[in-house]
């Protein structure tokens, strides 16, 4: 079936199998591999995107369900002026090791700071609880969130 999606402000069309997830369509049909595919079961958060401004796992959204709604992926964060402040903070704080979890964490952090520009330690932990990182031990990631909140 053919579906039409609004991704990062662009109208895109794709031929999909009806059961395909939004994540699969983004990566394999629309050439947007920023959202990562690790678990396909909502456990790791590496596929986090915004659907009508809400943080969701793209692997758990049926692509056809996103029709008529706005999708923002990590590719949509950076502007003409360069990196999104959250992306810059992750790089500066050394919060990126292998980098696999980074796109999901960047989207999650950008979403957190948009609604809560000065989050407490507990609020940061709760907001990031759906994103797993196997490398950093999270300390530098929390540093990056605080750095981004201050910028």
């Amino acid at each position: 079936m053919r579906i039409e999606l609004d991704v990062n402000g662009e109208q895109l069309e794709a031929d999909v199998w009806a059961g395909e997830s939004l994540l699969y369509v983004l990566r394999e049909r629309l050439g947007l591999p920023g959202s990562k595919n690790a678990c396909e079961q909502g456990e790791c958060g590496s596929c986090s995107v915004l659907l009508d401004g809400e943080l969701v796992c793209a692997c758990l959204v049926l692509a056809a369900q996103a029709e008529g709604h706005e999708v923002v992926t990590v590719e949509g964060l950076a502007g003409a002026e360069g990196l999104h402040p959250v992306q810059a903070a992750f790089a500066r704080a050394g919060a990126v090791q292998c980098g696999f979890c980074t796109p999901g964490l960047v989207v999650t952090t950008a979403h957190l700071l948009e609604r809560n520009p000065d989050p407490s330690e507990d609020e940061i932990r709760e907001a990031l609880s759906g994103n797993l990182c196997r490398c950093t031990g999270y300390a530098k990631i929390f540093d990056a969130v605080k750095l981004a909140a201050g910028t």
């Binding site: 009806a18 059961g19 997830s21 396909e40 079961q41 909502g42 692997c59 758990l60 959204v61 049926l62 056809a64 369900q65």
Partner: peptide, 22 residues
């Protein structure tokens, strides 16, 4: 609805319904 149970089954080929009622 939210797909948080249904999509896991679809992604892992555990279920193949004739169709989905969104």
């Amino acid at each position: 609805e939210g797909g948080t149970d249904v999509m896991v089954d679809l992604n892992f080929d555990r279920r193949r319904p004739v169709g989905l009622l969104n």
